[in-house]
Design a protein around this nucleic acid. Structure first.
Lengths: 362, 362
DNA sequence: CTAGCATGCTAAAACGATTTAGCTCGACCC
DNA sequence: GGGTCGAGCTAAATCGTTTTAGCATGCTAG
């Protein structure tokens, strides 16, 4: 019935009561905002404030439910503790895996991040880069995102095409990947191995292929050009969707069988094409792994669910994201410090049921 | 080492030149910051400023490369154009799909978002809720995230357990889902259908099962309790990983076959358990779909890659994320306005090769 | 007695915008 | 000649912090 109090007056709607500000705490204590700020931030300058007062301040802050306004603080300190992440799109599988790792690492270190999916459109990419800068992100992580201009912020690139001055690249160790897969096949006894090469526009294609060539030489395996098929990858700049990759794998599997040159194993460029090829192989009446062994690359979820389950080189996407974030935070913490140009991540071989010894030669 | 001219002193490293501020543009033109601000924001109050001056201002801003500082603007306007997203973790598949939709919608409308993965830990959830609030997000989207306390911000929940006052729930239309799947099976001629019920702690379990019961009645199908298996789902509060779900599906498929009661179709709770069950079915010597038809739920990527490919009820995750974001933006735009308590999204049935007519009865 | 020095605080200026409330000047009216 | 009006601006407050530079006050030392 008391109408004097404003919060009573608007009693109908439970209005958002205003957030408690530093100033409110100060007023409540009869102290200055400065003092409260110093205490709350455990600033070294709070040396001069007696423990008793400090305790009073903290108690009041707690009691009033004071929470500092991060925006105001950011403005004043010129630090946002936020980084920007640019990627083609989240649902892509690859990017989502990496993003998960980025997320873990950043939040753990008290940072947040803003994500923008540019859908492989240059215009959007430029716009979002602009917007992120306006929002004062402190650094950038680019996932699977081609970039030609030099960046005005500290940056780390995951699966990037080219080298950019000052930016760190996080890449999978293709040497190890090739050696793992081919050693496994060679030890099983395979000598004639077919390959799917990656799309010419994919970042990983070239280095992976070189690693395969090197590892083959090391192991004394010969590469038969007739058994080396290059996936097309669709229109420049766009990525194949997984379904398209699967279809292409299916078609290329059929092509491979049609070549006529004998082979007992296939090392595909990625899991989706491997899975597509498996379908073609099974359809042709051959059995996996009895007649043909198949090794994929990536270790997507479906790889484990295949029948037979797919042996594959696992890209630790989460770990790659984690490292990318860690590397960026390092740059932010030590500007001008020593940042590696490249961080290589070790893949692992996941042994499943799609590989086995080659059939006995008649 | 401090010399007179700072920018000369650090000449070695091409230091970040300071961002151009509003004040700089104003000074450059001999105008006041006020004027420049009015013009740049096309404020109605800029009515009084002659077009010629406006043009001068815009030209100068362009020339100097002026970009407003979003932080400062946020502080003054008390708007951040940012929302917070809480989810268990990004790589989970479900959440990543929804996040993709959220992302599309929000960026399109000029918002950004901050994501926090709480890994199903209450402590982390509370902390991140706090942190997001401190960062002044304007609203929240909770994906697959149980929440008991009422929230202090406008919020939309995707796949939430309970109803919260004032928050909008985005849910799949289970009625439609059940009808789609069961009608399909009934039309093929199936009468004896087995079911996997969801984990007791999953948000969707109860409503989906009720919908199944209702649809069965409608279609004159009888539900045999012996053919109704409830998945366990592991420890309370934790989610099964996909691999575990797959293994559970495999085990439950075996159980189902061991029951001895005849059935010609299985409607699983999700794709991973369906895929696991398919493996058990094939291993037992039965053929899919000749002997047993299988319908999944979700349409994960692997569903299309199975052999045979899996007929499933597709949850349009992207669309659900989009709608959630749209609904939140609506709330933000019209506070106190009319927000539906529930938004239901229509699933679709994806026909593939795991369903067919039942075997002829002898 | 006074300079010097802790001690315990605070005033005020940032940070970079937006926004409210005018201010100045000339033209026009009566 | 004084008042009014509109045109074209601007001063200053504000958002909520942090941080620099001091200001009182009382004690001690010389």
């Amino acid at each position: 019935m008391n109408t004097a109090r404003p919060e009573e007056a608007s009693g109908q709607e439970p209005r958002h009561e205003r957030r408690v500000r530093l100033k409110d705490v100060a007023a409540h204590l009869g102290l200055s905002p400065t003092t409260v700020s110093l205490v709350m931030n455990r600033s070294p300058a709070a040396r001069g404030i007696p423990p008793e007062t400090q305790e009073r301040v903290r108690a009041a802050a707690e009691k009033l439910g004071y929470r500092p306004n991060f925006i105001a603080r950011s403005l004043r300190r010129q630090r946002t503790f936020a980084v920007g992440v640019l990627l083609p799109e989240i649902s892509e599988g690859y990017a989502a895996g990496v993003l998960g790792g980025i997320e873990d690492q950043l939040l753990q270190e008290g940072y947040f991040y803003l994500v923008a999916g540019h859908h492989s459109k240059q215009g959007l990419l430029d716009d979002y880069l602009q917007l992120l800068t306006e929002r004062s992100v402190e650094g950038l992580i680019l996932v699977n995102t081609p970039m030609d201009q030099p960046l005005s912020l500290p940056a780390v690139v995951v699966a990037g095409h080219r080298e950019l001055p000052g930016v760190t690249n996080v890449v999978i160790d293709h040497e190890v990947a090739a050696r793992l897969a081919l050693t496994h096949l060679a030890e099983l006894g395979h000598r004639r191995i077919a390959f799917f090469k990656g799309h010419p526009h994919s970042a990983d294609t070239e280095s992976r292929w070189q690693a395969i060539v090197a590892a083959s030489a090391e192991l004394g395996l010969e590469i038969d050009p007739r058994l080396t098929l290059q996936l097309s990858g669709g229109p420049v700049g766009e990525q194949f969707s997984p379904e398209e990759g699967y279809r292409e794998g299916h078609v290329f599997g059929q092509k491979l069988l049609a070549v006529g040159a004998p082979f007992s194993a296939l090392f595909a460029f990625n899991d989706v094409s491997a899975i597509g090829a498996m379908r073609a192989i099974v359809e042709s009446g051959l059995r996996i792994p009895d007649d043909v062994s198949v090794v994929g690359f990536d270790d997507i979820l479906s790889a484990a669910f295949q029948n037979p389950s797919l042996t594959t080189v696992r890209q630790p996407l989460h770990e790659m994201g984690r490292r990318a974030a860690a590397e960026l935070l390092h740059k932010l913490g030590a500007p001008g410090g020593d940042s590696p140009a490249t961080v290589t991540i070790e893949p692992t071989l996941v042994l499943r049921d799609s590989t086995g010894p080659p059939p006995d030669r008649a």
